[in-house]
Amino acid sequence: MSIVVDVNRVSDSIDQDEDTYEKLKKAAQDGDIERLYELIAGDPDILEQIDKLSFRETPLHVAAEKGQTHFAMEVMNLKPSLALKLNASGYSPMHLALQGNHVRMVRGFVAVDSSLVSIKGRGRITPLHHVARIGDGELLSEFLLACPSSIQDLTIRCETAVHVAVKSRQFEAFKILLGWIERVKREEILNWKDEDGNTVFQIAASMNQTEVMKLLGKSVNVNAQSS
Rank of each mutant, 00 (worst) to 15 (best):
residue 26 K to N: 05
residue 16 Q to W: 00
residue 43 D to Q: 08
residue 116 L to K: 06
residue 142 E to I: 08
residue 24 L to A: 01
residue 24 L to I: 05
residue 32 D to A: 14
residue 51 D to Q: 13
residue 130 H to A: 10
residue 139 L to K: 08
residue 197 G to W: 04
residue 86 L to P: 02
residue 64 A to F: 02
residue 1 M to Y: 03
residue 78 L to T: 03
residue 17 D to K: 01
residue 106 V to G: 02
residue 61 H to I: 08
residue 135 G to H: 10
residue 56 R to N: 06
residue 75 V to I: 15
residue 157 R to M: 11
residue 5 V to K: 12
residue 146 A to W: 00
residue 103 V to H: 00
residue 140 L to Q: 10
residue 73 M to E: 10
residue 15 D to M: 13
residue 128 L to G: 10
residue 97 A to I: 01
residue 60 L to W: 03
residue 78 L to W: 03
residue 191 N to F: 05
residue 162 V to Y: 00
residue 62 V to A: 06
residue 92 S to H: 01
residue 219 S to Q: 11
residue 148 P to K: 03
residue 154 L to K: 15
residue 208 N to S: 12
residue 152 Q to R: 14
residue 47 L to P: 10
residue 192 W to Q: 12
residue 45 D to T: 13
residue 54 S to E: 14
residue 61 H to V: 08
residue 153 D to N: 09
residue 158 C to T: 13
residue 113 D to T: 08
residue 53 L to I: 15
residue 148 P to Y: 00
residue 162 V to F: 02
residue 207 M to R: 14
residue 160 T to D: 06
residue 175 K to V: 15
residue 40 I to E: 03
residue 141 S to Y: 02
residue 118 S to W: 00
residue 167 K to M: 08
residue 60 L to R: 05
residue 68 Q to E: 09
residue 26 K to M: 04
residue 136 D to N: 15
residue 164 V to A: 10
residue 143 F to T: 03
residue 5 V to G: 03
residue 213 M to A: 04
residue 221 N to T: 12
residue 110 V to E: 11
residue 149 S to V: 09
residue 22 E to Q: 13
residue 203 I to T: 12
residue 54 S to Q: 13
residue 25 K to R: 15
residue 77 N to D: 10
residue 178 L to G: 09
residue 36 L to N: 07
residue 141 S to W: 01
residue 144 L to I: 03
residue 34 E to P: 06
residue 172 E to G: 02
residue 181 I to D: 01
residue 78 L to Q: 07
residue 60 L to S: 06
residue 135 G to S: 13
residue 161 A to K: 07
residue 66 K to Y: 11
residue 65 E to F: 07
residue 86 L to I: 11
residue 192 W to I: 10
residue 208 N to Y: 07
residue 187 E to L: 14
residue 57 E to R: 14
residue 111 A to P: 00
residue 208 N to K: 08
residue 165 A to R: 12
residue 159 E to T: 04
residue 46 I to T: 01
residue 47 L to F: 09
residue 195 E to M: 12
residue 115 S to T: 14
residue 92 S to K: 03
residue 168 S to C: 14
residue 90 G to E: 08
residue 166 V to G: 07
residue 170 Q to F: 00
residue 114 S to C: 01
residue 108 G to H: 06
residue 24 L to C: 04
residue 32 D to W: 02
residue 22 E to T: 05
residue 57 E to H: 09
residue 227 S to K: 07
residue 160 T to S: 13
residue 65 E to G: 09
residue 104 R to V: 09
residue 152 Q to F: 12
residue 80 P to F: 04
residue 104 R to T: 11
residue 111 A to D: 14
residue 123 G to I: 02
residue 149 S to R: 12
residue 26 K to H: 03
residue 185 K to Y: 07
residue 13 S to G: 04
residue 98 L to N: 04
residue 10 V to W: 00
residue 103 V to G: 01
residue 64 A to R: 05
residue 137 G to C: 15
residue 71 F to D: 02
residue 187 E to Q: 14
residue 100 G to V: 04
residue 135 G to W: 12
residue 117 V to R: 00
residue 174 F to S: 07
residue 179 G to H: 09
residue 146 A to G: 09
residue 21 Y to P: 03
residue 192 W to D: 11
residue 16 Q to T: 12
residue 176 I to N: 07
residue 51 D to N: 14
residue 64 A to K: 08
residue 122 R to V: 01
residue 159 E to F: 04
residue 63 A to C: 09
residue 88 A to D: 15
residue 33 I to M: 04
residue 91 Y to W: 04
residue 49 Q to T: 15
residue 113 D to L: 04
residue 161 A to W: 04
